[in-house]
Design a protein around this nucleic acid. Structure first.
Length: 899
RNA sequence: GGACGCGUAGCUCAGUCGGUUGGAGCGCUGCGUUCACAUCGCAGAGGUCACAGGUUCGAGUCCUGUCGCGUCCACCA
């Protein structure tokens, strides 16, 4: 079988992928004969396009899924996408804006129709891209967070939590994004350090001439909502203010003075202005002291009618304008630069406004405790382990989750209000949490719209306008995708899933919440292991992002280098859980490796005679006398296989990839194939080349699925080989008895000898075509035997015509190398530059003496010889013995050359 | 303010249980194209393992501290 000279992934990948897909190799189904292995994909947003983070994340999952499948598990990778409420709504709004259409012009229903249309057209872009990567997802099961089934699960969960008292509605300070015009959860508000100003402002004392209190604030515009000023009771500066009242500048509102130990006397002026409706701390103070909550802003963060002349002004304009007015009035003291953390919307990066608002919340503490226990007890393990602490810290300080969003795209909150009952309610429905059951009058929580009010029979019923946080569907993903709340066979078989592979950014958003939901609704953890991989950054360490323009597009890389190259490169440079700094040139590593494998396979196939293939390597091994290099390469293969299996079990993907790379390239290609060339048509060589190649392809398949399949398909098959795809082949079985440390050590010695001859040839510029004579001087009978047994090998690989082994003295005018207990002479009459050779030997001698000094003093030290383990001491003794021989030989040579 | 990660060759990074003169890829130097592969081969140069202490017979590896870089969390306005 002839292969082209260079591997061309473009020709291969799509064909192979659609072949796999059409044969149904990605599909898994409950099978009582097999153990399940399952992974649910972190569902990418429908607005998403594949970036390097996805490429890394999904390559890791694919490696696991393919590996487990080969190991005989019923291996399920559940794929799907997330409706991504705010993100998608923003994208569709932007695309409508291009046509000059606004969301509110369309109205809710029409707009949602538009979003569905958009989703039909673009929503599966990322799925197509995952296929390009080679992902073996079970596409037949692809789910979407707004599918009927998943939506059903969302409603079910909302109602259950409400009935359990774990969902409530209340007026609290939430993070408000004025651009998206919705509430956000605490996690969706990202803190970033901002260079702001700390403004010092005079608040006059009522009915007094010149008395005033100076407050310090970073947000002067919020003073429009001030109702008090708080100071520390111990603060003597303010002791004289008892029973006095302050006047709010500009608006003239009367402000109480609060004495509260909470106030930090050392910050600013020690006087804190209190704005209960616009600051979480002040909100707390407001509740404590029964203060009025004055909301000063509209939804778009312009000042509302409370602000008098400032009404309609944007919050930041108002800030400046208010400062100006304060200056005019002589109430402004100073502003100083002040760096502080400010929340930003995680979708549009607008500065978030803390704001009092009526929202729905999930009470988290009761959900958190069993989820904490699941991780503490080790039922769920994080890899790397350090994330355990991050998870636990967050869970132990968990705060209630604001789940309502004032947008249109998402799962609408299953709450209905009876207008009649609400109107006649003794208290408003503003705060469902605090009120006993009968005061929740008018609130109907139901999966379907009730025809009439169960209390008064009115049909004037309206659904809550809000939708749920996107993550309120994502947290159900590990079981809702398998059909929950129905008890499907898939759910029973594949849940709990095995491994969750994700990035650190969504531990709180997603991982923690899934653990809570799994335990709450399934009474079982959602997964056993969580593997947290690093973030992909550009070469300067900056996180890759479209807005920064520093992205490397995985699809570009796939078309340039191939999907296997992309996968292999990114895996091999990503140490467990460490961030990865990526430059395009990194992908050459994988491309070159693919090409190397391709050519090695090409060479082997060129020489392969099908009838010579032994049916089973083990059987063949038992009955045949193998040469040292043959035993060595088999041993190395099985050692590598063993190591790789272990690495995959511990999520050390880079180490696994690098071990395969080292074995295939340097051991198999550089040494074994070269060694085998002279006997390439022999049955033993053919069998071993074939077997190692075929098994290596299987070992490599999870990492580089396309090229391994392509070669495997072209490889002649022994008669009993089953199946028609490498995907369905078993993971090779480690044959312990074929691993021989002794053979590996012997081969290492031969390699050293060959390398040192090559080295001398290179140093003395011996042309490659010229064969040389070499004399190896040694007393050691084992060395003599090893070299004699493999004399042809050494001669061929070092290009030696006459090789003499045994007790020999140094021929005059020759180069020398001292290796182990041997001297290797390369006679070079007339070619030797004695000064150069002397310098070379001196350098080597110096190194040896240095090592000897360390060894001697260590071995003389009783502390060492008595306390160190015996095998370590023995090893040192052996090394010393060998080294002293080497030094003696080196000295002789130096003396001779100086003469 | 709290927590975590990183600092090893010119660059980007590995480094298992602590075991004694530390590896890879790229780059660099020299040689090489009788056919598996120049996306290649052979040979080589290149290191005070950030710094300072400590534990140990022995430290790149464990402990403490310092410096530098990065990330996450956090209600000092």
């Amino acid at each position: 079988m002839e292969l082209p000279k260079t591997y061309n992934p473009q020709e291969v990948e799509d064909r192979i992928y659609s072949d796999w897909e059409s044969r149904g190799y990605f599909h898994a189904a409950p099978d009582p004969q097999k153990k399940p292995y399952s992974i649910v994909i972190p569902p990418p947003n429908i607005t998403g396009i594949l970036h390097m983070g996805h490429a890394l994340n999904n390559t890791i999952q694919d490696i696991l899924v393919r590996f487990k499948k080969m190991q005989g598990f019923e291996s399920e990778w559940m794929p799907g996408t997330d409706h991504a409420g705010i993100a998608t709504q923003n994208v569709v709004e932007r695309s409508l804006a291009k046509k000059g259409v606004k969301r509110h012009d369309l109205g809710r229903e029409k707009f949602i129709e538009e979003v569905w249309k958009w989703r039909e057209e673009y929503g599966s872009t990322i799925i197509k891209q995952l296929k390009k990567l080679g992902c073996s997802c079970d596409w037949e099961r692809t789910r979407f967070t707004m599918d009927d089934g998943l939506s059903e699960a969302v409603l079910d969960v909302f109602v259950k939590l409400y009935q359990k008292g774990l969902i409530y509605r209340g007026n609290y300070i939430i993070n408000w994004c004025p651009r998206c015009q919705t509430a956000l959860s605490d996690e969706e508000s990202q803190h970033k350090d901002i260079d702001g100003m700390l403004y010092h402002i005079k608040y006059p004392v009522k009915a007094s001439n010149n008395e005033y209190v100076v407050v310090a604030t970073t947000r002067p515009e919020t003073m429009l909502g001030d109702v008090a000023v708080a100071v520390n009771p111990k603060d003597e500066r303010y002791a004289g203010l008892k029973n006095k009242t302050l006047l709010l500048p500009i608006l003239g509102r009367e402000l109480k003075i609060l004495y509260d130990g909470f106030v930090d006397m050392t910050f600013g002026t020690g006087a804190l202005k209190v704005t209960p409706a616009h600051d979480p701390v002040d909100f707390g103070l407001g509740l404590k002291y029964g203060l009025e909550q004055i909301n000063i802003m509209n939804d778009d963060a312009t000042i509302n009618s409370v602000g008098g002349d400032y009404e309609g002004m944007d919050r930041f304009e108002a800030r400046e304008a208010i400062v100006d007015e304060l200056k005019d009035r002589g109430l402004f003291i100073k502003s100083e630069p002040h760096r502080h953390a400010v929340g930003h919307c995680y979708r549009c990066h607008t500065i978030v406004e803390p704001r009092l608002s009526l929202q729905w919340f999930v009470r988290m503490k009761p959900l958190a405790s069993p989820a904490i226990e699941a991780v503490r007890s080790g039922s769920i393990k994080f890899y790397p382990e350090r994330w355990t602490k991050v998870y636990l810290d967050w869970m132990e300080n968990i705060r209630d989750w604001c789940i309502s969003r004032q947008i249109w795209w998402g799962h609408r909150i299953p709450v209905y209000y009876c207008k009649q009952c609400v109107a006649s309610s003794p208290s408003s429905i503003k705060d469902v949490e605090q009120k006993p059951e009968d005061d929740r009058r008018g609130v109907i929580v139901s999966k379907t719209k009730p025809g009439k009010c169960p209390v008064c029979g009115s049909t004037e019923i309206e659904q809550d306008q809000d939708v749920l946080d996107t993550w309120f569907s994502s947290w159900l993903w590990p079981f809702s995708t398998f059909g929950w709340p129905k008890e499907t066979p898939e759910l029973k078989y594949f849940y709990p899933t095995d491994t969750l592979v994700t990035a650190q950014e969504i531990i709180f958003f997603w991982v923690a919440r899934m653990i809570m939901a799994g335990i709450e609704f399934r009474n079982a953890i959602p997964f056993k292991s969580v593997y947290i991989h690093g973030t992909v950054r550009d070469i300067t360490g900056t996180k890759m992002s479209k807005s920064l323009g520093n992205v490397i597009d995985p699809l570009d890389m796939i078309s340039k280098y191939g999907a296997d190259a992309l996968r292999f490169s990114i895996i091999s440079i990503t140490a467990q859980g460490q961030d990865v700094y990526l430059a395009e040139s990194r992908f050459e590593l994988g491309r070159n490796f693919a090409n190397k494998i391709w050519n090695a396979s090409r060479f082997i196939m060129m020489n392969l005679k099908e009838e010579d293939m032994a049916p089973d390597l083990c059987v063949f091994f038992e009955g045949t006398k193998l040469t040292l290099p043959e035993r060595w390469i088999l041993s190395r293969f099985y050692s590598t296989l063993n190591y790789v299996s272990g690495c995959l079990a511990e999520y050390k993907f880079n180490e696994a990839a690098n071990a395969i790379y080292e074995f295939l390239w340097h051991e198999f290609c550089d040494w074994y194939i070269e060694i085998a060339k002279p006997t390439i048509t022999g049955r033993n060589s053919q069998t071993i080349l074939y077997k190692i190649l075929e098994k290596s392809l299987r070992m490599l398949h999870p990492f580089m699925p396309f090229i391994t399949e392509e070669i495997w398909q072209k490889l002649p098959k022994p008669k009993k080989a089953s199946g028609d795809s490498i995907m369905t082949q078993p993971w090779p079985h480690v044959q312990d008895r074929m691993i021989s440390r002794e053979d590996e050590e012997k081969m290492r010695e031969l390699i050293e000898v060959i390398t040192s001859i090559r080295n001398m040839r290179a140093v003395w510029n011996i042309e490659a075509r010229v064969d040389v004579d070499v004399i190896i001087n040694t007393n050691d009978s084992e060395d003599v035997k090893l070299l004699s047994d493999n004399i042809d090998l050494v001669k061929k690989l070092a290009k030696v015509s006459d090789l003499r082994i045994g007790k020999h003295s140094k021929p005059k005018s020759s180069a020398v190398s001292v290796i182990r207990k041997m001297e290797i002479f390369l006679p070079l009459e007339g070619l030797i530059d004695f000064e150069k050779e002397k310098a070379r030997l001196l350098k080597e001698h110096l190194r040896m003496e240095g090592e000897m000094k360390g060894l001697s003093s260590r071995l003389k030290d009783r502390n060492f010889t008595s306390k160190a383990p015996k095998e370590i001491v023995d090893k040192q003794e052996e090394r010393k013995a060998e080294l002293s021989i080497q030094i003696k030989k080196m000295k002789d040579n130096l003396r001779e050359i100086s003469a």
